[in-house]
Design a protein around this nucleic acid. Structure first.
Length: 958
RNA sequence: GCGGGUGUGGUGGAAUUGGUAGACACGCUAGAUUUAGGAUCUAGUGCCGCAAGGCGUGAAGGUUCGAGUCCUUUCACCCGCACCA
């Protein structure tokens, strides 16, 4: 077929079929080549399909993959689906359709969309988290977590049998673990315990364990809700009341790995912002635990403080409303008032608490505790600024050196005692001084010490007197691992007499049974609880919770290495060969979820000796969100003449009536020039809008043509200048705004190569940017120019063996160098510019030299694989361009002999002079001083100084 | 409040890391070509000014021969955490 025009549809269809039929992207494990592992965060296959924002990262990783392949690497570039999840389950509840069916259908659509963009995925390695051959291993990892505990001495997970052996020999007196607090027992005591007692103790050690926790229970929906599903104390769907309910749930002991998760951040190449988010999330703080005796009582209160140095400045004590000793501490006189306070504080949602941070609230308990050093009586208060879930739920308040304590002290008129002196302090009665700098005062034996010294001395003293210890606290909490849902991995657990026992590996996978209804049972259990013949087994009762969405995604990158393995999650050799993910691209929204859990599981699998690395993703890039335009038509808040009234946005601005109108998002299909300031709806747009909005049938529309109703608009001539201007905003692409741009449509109109290059051209990968189709023409034009440069009007390839001009040679070498370094630094937008520059230079030179043109195709092919493959074959190549090697550049042709020097006077460029690069400073200065323009600016005066930086610039200072 | 990030033409964005600000592209203007075009080509396009020239990277200072880039202060927006002891 000879085609003179660039027919992207034909070319892309042909090569996509070709690549598929000859398995061009299949990757083998057994190879002597060096490996490269490029991974995309796999998507959840939603019913909405892909929009143009999704492929952004996929395109970038695809470019890198193709580039690395050309560079001689064996590249693992797989794709799969995070296929368990709530949307399919919700859909099932509504329609009765099995989530597996919906999910499979959505995956088919995703696959079509992905294929249309021409990615180099090895689909033979696809994984789906909902596939039993996959989740067999998710369940297996859970079993391992259940069978292991964290030995703090060895700083790694160890098998629970080792722990039991220790218990049998010496009890737990010498065991250092990372887990819940456990009562100390001896070997003989251990042997005396009953089986349930032993298991209850082991639960404090296991990395997968059960614990009581509060969940968001919605009686009306008969189900447990995620935090995101609860808004202002009511369910997001339906607005039903939600209460806190206690429930036994599975947890994973991620806190055991807190330190390693923190330290590991220093070893990986991730954006600082993500690392910082994870550091904050882990929230490690060093300080001391201090015990305060309660006056006239046997009780003592444990506090955690990061500032043990300020102990002498502590003038009162504050406990959280949910503190375990609250009731015991209430005096007769204070009981009524305090209980009322606790009642309202506990019922306040976190959001409510957040909204009035400034307000100081609290209540005196009537009890006092004793200062451990001075013996002074300190009043104990209850206040909700102390959180039950952090530290010990109690603090020693130091109003002089903590701003929150200061505000509280002011409000309740408590004394404020300064214990740190610092030149910056004006008056601690007026404001606290929180910084850890200064010299101790009013602190007995610590007086005169610097703060850091005082902190460590105080800890030593606390430990000597046995009233406290140096302690480390984390914000990180253990991860809830159970969901009362159907569409997730079943737990491979059987309960006999309430004791959980995991299934042997030979019985995995434990598959999901069919259910007649996907609705929750109504008493808080998952739909699985209704399947009694599944739940009841001879060995005991099955767990009816399922695992959360992040279970399957925490280790999928390992499965890609050996996806069909039936014996293990992946063969040792495969894991050893592929190793860490070299490049991982995905959204930043997973900062504290997936990215933290995957690191946790990797470290655990590392402890088990299954993976040789202990960080999964060596390099992480977070692609920015591609935003859409949201177009709003402006509706008057109050009806006008008893009917809804819309007004063109330009007129609202003109009349300064913004306050009178609200915005109503409309489908962008109905809007002309959408995304632009001048976006508007024409008469047909308005009429289409009204078709779906019968509630506005009698509405009136005010434009420059005056005010008219539906009939009036319908009667207008086709070409009438009816313009209902819309208000344009930028925001997330979503169905809701009707602003989703489908990559299929772009591929249809411009082709996949244009889409790929345009998404890269849009800006730096990591930046958020609005999708705007206006700029796409430039990229499309570029590819058409490429085509026309290679193919003449008759469809014949335009190539020769004529010697290329020096300019062409320099241009292509420059381009090879630039593209190579741009890909190496993930700067894809500047790479696209470089192609454009190079092509126009080759056009100027009318370059048809085979070597130059072939090199241009080689470096362009990762970006635009279809057109380059087509031209490559037109150039007579039998082999695919996929297997062409990456060209190198000849540095010698890039060396310049002259430089156009910018000549500036006082730092302002005034003229330019082309001078040899090897000319020395003195010579340059001489020539510059003789220059007319320079002389004109000097105006007869002698310059104060002449700066000559050879190869860069000349600056004449007057 | 704390932490991280970003501010450059009408627009998306470049700038070899302290050395000609605005590459490349969109848009716009003019012209050519075409029956026509949302096609193609050529030229122009930061702002003010007829010009000489002046101004110009959110704002204000500073360091420097020279600052988009470094320092100080400040403003705006985005993201994360949110009374974390």
């Amino acid at each position: 077929m000879q085609n003179a025009d660039y027919d992207h549809r034909e070319i892309e269809r042909f090569w996509q079929k070709n690549w598929q039929s000859r398995q061009a992207y299949k990757v083998e494990n057994d190879t002597s080549k060096p490996k490269y592992y490029a991974l995309d965060m796999f998507p959840y296959p939603s019913g909405a399909g892909l929009h143009v924002g999704h492929p952004l990262g996929y395109i970038a990783s695809d470019i890198v993959s193709r580039y690395k392949r050309a560079k001689g690497f064996n590249v693992l570039h797989p794709m799969g689906f995070d296929a368990f999840g709530l949307p399919a389950e919700q859909y099932a509840i509504q329609t009765g359709k099995h989530p597996a069916e919906t999910t499979a259908e959505n995956i088919v659509r995703y696959r079509q969309q992905l294929d249309r963009i021409g990615f180099s995925y090895d689909w033979s390695r696809e994984v789906r988290t909902c596939d039993p051959t996959y989740y067999k291993w998710t369940q297996w990892i859970f079993c391992q977590l259940f069978e292991h505990w964290y030995n703090a001495n060895a700083d790694r997970a160890e098998h629970i049998d080792n722990l039991i052996a220790i218990f049998e020999n010496e009890g737990n007196v010498n065991v250092q673990h990372r887990g819940s607090d456990v009562v100390r027992f001896t070997a003989s005591e251990w042997l005396e315990y009953t089986k349930p007692e032993k298991e209850a103790i082991l639960q404090n050690y296991r990395l997968a364990f059960q614990a009581e926790t509060t969940v968001n229970w919605c009686e009306a929906l008969g189900t447990v809700l995620a935090n995101e599903e609860v808004k202002d104390g009511v369910s997001e769907r339906g607005g039903h009341p939600v209460i806190k309910k206690n429930m036994k749930q599975w947890f994973l002991r991620i806190t055991a790995y807190a330190d390693r998760l923190l330290d590991g951040l220093d070893k990986i190449d991730w954006a600082d912002s993500i690392k910082e988010i994870q550091r904050n999330w882990i929230g490690k703080s060093k300080g001391a635990g201090i015990r305060f005796e309660v006056a006239d009582s046997d009780l003592s209160l444990e506090v955690f403080t990061t500032r043990p140095d300020t102990l002498y400045g502590s003038t009162f004590m504050v406990i959280a409303p949910e503190h375990e000793y609250v009731q015991e501490l209430l005096s007769y006189e204070q009981r009524e008032e305090a209980e009322a306070y606790i009642e309202q504080a506990v019922n306040r949602s976190e959001r409510d608490r957040m909204s009035d941070v400034k307000k100081v609230t609290g209540c005196f308990t009537g009890s006092y505790c004793l200062h451990p050093f001075s013996g002074e009586k300190l009043p104990i208060y209850i206040a909700d600024y102390v959180l039950g879930g952090y530290g010990t739920g109690a603090i020693m308040a130091v109003p002089a050196h903590d701003s929150r304590d200061h505000a509280f002290a002011k409000h309740f008129d408590l004394s404020i005692l300064q214990v740190i002196d610092n030149a910056e302090i004006a008056n601690v009665q007026a404001a606290s001084f929180d910084a850890k700098e200064g010299i101790m005062i009013n602190s007995d034996w610590m007086n005169g010490m610097q703060v850091p010294e005082a902190i460590s001395e105080m800890i030593t003293e606390l430990e000597r007197r046995e009233i406290g210890n140096g302690e480390i606290n984390y914000k990180l909490r253990d991860a809830g691992f159970g969901r009362q849902r159907y569409w997730g991995e079943p737990f491979p657990v059987l309960f006999k007499d309430e004791i959980p026992k995991i299934l042997p590996t030979s019985e995995l996978p434990l598959t999901l049974p069919d259910v007649s209804s996907y609705k929750p049972t109504g008493d808080g259990e998952s739909p699985l609880a209704a399947v009694q013949d599944w739940v009841q087994t001879e060995q005991g009762l099955r767990e009816t919770d399922t695992m959360p969405g992040w279970a399957g995604s925490s280790w999928y990158f390992i499965r890609y290495m050996d996806p069909q393995n039936r014996e293990e999650l992946a063969a040792e050799a495969a894991i050893k060969y592929w190793g860490q993910v070299d490049l991982y691209i995905g959204g930043a929204e997973h900062a504290t979820g997936h990215l933290l859990y995957a690191r946790f599981w990797t470290k655990f699998l590392h402890d088990l000796g299954i993976v040789p690395f202990d960080e999964p993703f060596a390099k992480l890039i977070n692609q920015g969100m591609i935003q859409g335009s949201i177009e709003n038509i402006c509706l008057r808040k109050e009806k006008l003449n008893d009917v809804p009234h819309f007004k063109s946005y330009d007129l609202i601005v003109k009349d300064k009536e913004q306050d009178l109108y609200t915005k109503l998002p409309v489908l962008i299909d109905l809007v002309q020039d959408y995304g632009k300031e001048t976006s508007y709806m024409d008469r047909l747009g308005i009429l289409k809008f009204l078709e779906n909005r019968e509630d506005f049938n009698d509405a009136t529309f005010e434009t420059t043509l005056g005010t008219m109703d539906k009939e009036g608009i319908a009667d207008l001539e086709d070409g009438a200048s009816f313009r209902m201007e819309t208000l344009t905003e930028t925001g997330k692409m979503s169905k809701r705004w009707g602003n989703v741009v489908n990559p299929d449509d772009v591929c249809k109109q411009y082709g996949a190569d244009t889409l790929r290059m345009y998404e890269m051209f849009l800006g730096p990968l990591e930046d958020a940017k609005p999708w705007n189709t206006q700029g796409i023409d430039g990229v499309y034009r570029f590819l058409r120019k490429v085509w026309k440069h290679y193919v003449d009007e008759n469809g014949d390839i335009r190539v020769s063996d004529d010697k290329p001009s020096a300019k062409s040679v320099k241009s292509i070498n420059q381009c090879i160098k630039k593209i190579t370094s741009d890909i190496d630094s993930y700067s894809f937008n500047t790479a696209v510019s470089s192609f454009m520059i190079c092509l126009s230079e080759l056009q100027d030179e009318k370059c048809s030299n085979r070597e130059v043109l072939e090199n241009f195709l080689r470096i362009l092919s990762p970006f635009a694989p279809h057109i380059t493959e087509e031209l490559w074959s037109k150039l007579g190549h039998e082999d695919s361009i996929l297997d062409a090697t990456w060209p190198s550049w000849d540095e010698s042709v890039l060396v310049e002999s002259t430089k156009v020097y910018p000549i500036s006077i006082n730092g302002k460029t005034r003229t330019q002079l082309e001078l040899p690069l090897d000319m020395d400073k003195a010579e340059i200065e001489k020539i510059v001083m003789a220059n007319d323009v320079v002389q004109k600016w000097l105006d007869g005066k002698a310059p104060k100084k002449v700066i000559v930086i050879p190869g860069r610039i000349v600056n004449v200072v007057m």
